[in-house]
Simulated scan of single mutants.
Amino acid sequence: MYTPSYFKEADVASLHTQIEGARLAILVTCDASGLQASHLPLLFRPEEGEHATLYGHFAKANPQWKALKNGAEVMVIFPGADAYISPSFYPAKAEHGKVVPTWNYLAIHAYGRAEVFTDHQRLLALVSALTDKHESRRPTPWAVADAPADYIEKMLSAIVGFALSITRLEGKRKLNQNRSAEDAAGVRDGLTASGDANDRHVAHLMSQGDSDA
């Protein structure tokens, strides 16, 4: 990922927080079969391995799991908040007009190689943990144990699990750090006034950056 120094996010705790909060990741491989990508919910275990471990599963019919089994390097993309930045947000537009549109965003790339598994007990533990994570905020959470055991066994036979030990993390936090304080404030104000919740969230992230500084 192209990351100029002023956009680099090197704080491990911040990276882990963003990964933990991700809803859906993009897992990418490249091998003899070519480029493949799958959109997957993942479990993040920061305490496992040298740089943490990611757990997930594929449908057995999805051939990408074979790339993992054969030792292909994996890249996992965790998209974060993003917002379009209009040149009209910049005070510099009125001063000299030398401004162009851009995009503010957060992103993390994780790299590593994975172990695949089909053991039903291990798969059951994985899907149960994933379900519990995403059901936890519901008033009446659904649990894997709510479904008939024979049905769950059939479903487990149709998936392949994996454990990906992270070897490298790259984080990018592009929030106008390369602009003047006046232009950054203009962007923050413009996004705050937006009717889009995503824009307002990015403005909040920019304000957090000011507080940290």
Rank of each mutant, 00 (worst) to 15 (best):
M1D: 09
Y2E: 00
P4V: 11
S5A: 15
F7N: 08
F7W: 07
K8R: 07
A10G: 11
D11I: 14
S14E: 14
S14F: 14
H16M: 12
Q18P: 01
E20C: 13
A22M: 01
R23Y: 11
L24C: 07
L24D: 00
A25P: 01
V28T: 06
C30A: 15
D31M: 04
S33M: 05
L35T: 13
S38M: 10
L40G: 00
L43G: 01
R45Y: 13
E48I: 15
G49I: 05
G49Q: 04
A52E: 12
T53C: 05
A59E: 03
K60F: 10
A61H: 02
A61R: 04
W65E: 00
W65Y: 00
A67D: 10
A67Y: 08
L68K: 00
N70F: 06
E73Q: 13
V74G: 02
M75G: 08
F78T: 11
F78Q: 03
G80W: 05
D82Y: 03
D82H: 11
A83K: 02
P87E: 09
S88M: 12
Y90Q: 01
Y90C: 12
Y90A: 07
A92Q: 14
K93E: 14
K93L: 05
E95H: 15
E95P: 11
H96D: 12
H96L: 10
K98P: 01
V99M: 11
P101I: 12
T102K: 03
L106Y: 15
A110W: 02
Y111R: 06
A114E: 04
A114N: 09
F117K: 05
H120F: 07
H120C: 12
R122M: 13
L126R: 01
L126P: 00
L126V: 03
V127H: 09
S128I: 03
T131R: 05
D132N: 07
D132R: 06
H134A: 13
P139E: 13
T140G: 11
W142D: 02
W142Y: 01
V144S: 10
A147P: 08
P148A: 13
A149L: 10
A149E: 14
D150H: 07
I152G: 02
M155D: 10
A158H: 04
F162S: 07
F162E: 10
L164S: 05
L164Q: 04
I166F: 04
R168V: 08
L169I: 08
E170H: 00
G171W: 06
G171M: 11
G171R: 04
G171V: 03
K172P: 12
L175R: 07
N176C: 15
N178T: 06
N178W: 05
R179D: 12
A181I: 02
D183N: 01
A184C: 15
A184V: 06
G186I: 05
R188F: 06
R188C: 01
L191K: 02
T192G: 10
T192K: 14
N198G: 11
N198L: 06
H201R: 15
H201Y: 09
V202A: 11
A203Q: 00
A203S: 00
S207Y: 10
Q208D: 13
G209E: 06
G209D: 15
D210A: 12
D212I: 15
